[in-house]
Design a protein around this nucleic acid. Sequence first.
DNA 1: TTCCATTGCATAGATTTCTAAGTATTATGT
DNA 2: ACATAATACTTAGAAATCTATGCAATGGAA
Lengths: 159, 159
Amino acid sequence: MAARRRDKRRTANGVEFPLAQSSGFLVRDANRAFQRLLEKRITPHGIARGQWYFLRVLLSEDGLSQRELSARVGTMEPTTVIALRSMEKAGLIRRVRSAEDKRRSQVWLTPKAQRLRDELLALARGITDEAEAGIARAELAAFRRVVARMTANLDRVKA
Amino acid sequence: MAARRRDKRRTANGVEFPLAQSSGFLVRDANRAFQRLLEKRITPHGIARGQWYFLRVLLSEDGLSQRELSARVGTMEPTTVIALRSMEKAGLIRRVRSAEDKRRSQVWLTPKAQRLRDELLALARGITDEAEAGIARAELAAFRRVVARMTANLDRVKA
DNA sequence: TTCCATTGCATAGATTTCTAAGTATTATGT
DNA sequence: ACATAATACTTAGAAATCTATGCAATGGAA
């Protein structure tokens, strides 16, 4: 199919850099695959993708401020505001203005969210298991080391 | 800081699954790191992040249909429509309705985009180099194998 | 040939995310 | 004490992405 019109296509000259060799492209693909499956699995629980990451963090560490949550989840604060607003509307969290520092909001899971805890963590584990199927322990450990190193490398770049 | 309010926080019981051990989270982090740096570097060239991936594919294989492009880039077709519209407005591509099949649009890079080719591929290579700094060749090869396997694993899941 | 399914692209509307800028509260330096 | 800076959150607006649906062209079956 690609060959059908090959004659019309520009032959690549000069610099070459096939996509298949791009770590960034591979990571992007994997990320979308994770997100697609995640979304399929959490939607039946009434949870949206944008809510998931915050829920996931709060399940381990409840009562964080919005800024702390943003740091843990890795999103900018306006994103956090939007996600938390929808989570509050969905009855998953409460936001409590701190008495000592009135700028601060602390975020607490509701009993409803607490009750979902084991089910959601099992769901997360399930997706991870699907992803990691057939990959050796040692390879996974190496993978985690490399991908974390890449993130650190990129975060360290000035511009 | 976390310890300061530990007493108030729910102690995790039952299932546990620390975020730091989640491949999905690691991949998401890496993806955002790639995207952040990418955006910083392409913006000065007048290219938006959403345009990048299509440009990147077209630089290797010009004259694809929108459906083929969607498949290569890995986005849904409405996303492709939006990206291509902005690229056409920006003078990076032309869309030519196929004569043999009037449903079909073929997408061609403009001379302007062609002239950016070597610069953009070098830019892509540069980001990859930053990401991969200090990681051994063998580890990179293993990484690529694992991440591609994860994507394939996830894509194969029914629901 | 004519009808129906398929294919290729587009539109509509929602969600998730960002940057830039604004508001309220608290901390700090003089 | 007061002005200024820093902090915590919010709003506004734009971009990128998705699902669901629609429309036009093509192909295939009866």
